[in-house]
Amino acid sequence: MVADEAAALAHDEGKYGTVGVVALDQAGHVAAGTSTGGTTGKRWGRVGDSPIIGAGNYASDASCAVSATGTGEYFIRLTVAREICALVEHKGLSLQAAADEVIQTKLTALGGDGGVIAVAPDGQMAWSYNTSGMYRARLAAGEPLTVGIYKDEP
């Protein structure tokens, strides 16, 4: 691909925000992926918390897979993604309860903002965020597609 072709692919809409994904395969293995983006409007191409395993993403078949977005400094301090997995694995919390404990209680108490999406090997799915909205979608076999941006949406 020549430089002009690559430049033509770039557009303003693709330069902001984190893109995260969590997945569960048929064998019960989980995975997480998170791009470097951060909160809306942050400088494109910067390095944030997303690539830091434990802070912006984490996956373990013993607990869950988590992808996170938000104010990275707080996610790093709390190792948000790993903390959610630890609460599921070691304290036996449901995935939603663990995500809410970390995002709604611990992250909020520090003054951080952002959110997570997560999936567990048993099929539990969760998201939690302490901002006015978070772009998100969920799809599972036999269930309808769920898409939302704001808190008052599913």
Rank of each mutant, 00 (worst) to 15 (best):
A31M: 05
A8E: 14
V21M: 07
H11L: 06
I52P: 03
S132P: 15
D49P: 00
H11G: 15
G17K: 07
S67V: 02
T18N: 09
V2T: 13
A141I: 08
K91A: 01
S94Y: 01
S50K: 01
S94R: 04
D122Q: 06
G142S: 11
T36Q: 08
D25Q: 11
A32N: 01
I52A: 06
G72H: 01
V21D: 01
G28K: 08
G111L: 06
E89I: 10
N130L: 03
H11N: 14
S132L: 11
T105F: 04
N57G: 11
L107R: 05
T131D: 10
A8Y: 07
V47P: 05
A81P: 00
P121S: 05
E153L: 09
T39I: 15
Y74G: 00
G20Y: 01
I103C: 12
A137G: 15
A86R: 15
A23I: 08
A97G: 02
T69I: 10
Y74W: 05
H90V: 10
V47Q: 03
A109I: 03
S63T: 08
K42E: 12
D100Y: 02
S132I: 14
G148Q: 09
V22G: 01
G142N: 13
T79F: 05
L9D: 09
G70E: 09
A140N: 07
A65V: 06
R43K: 15
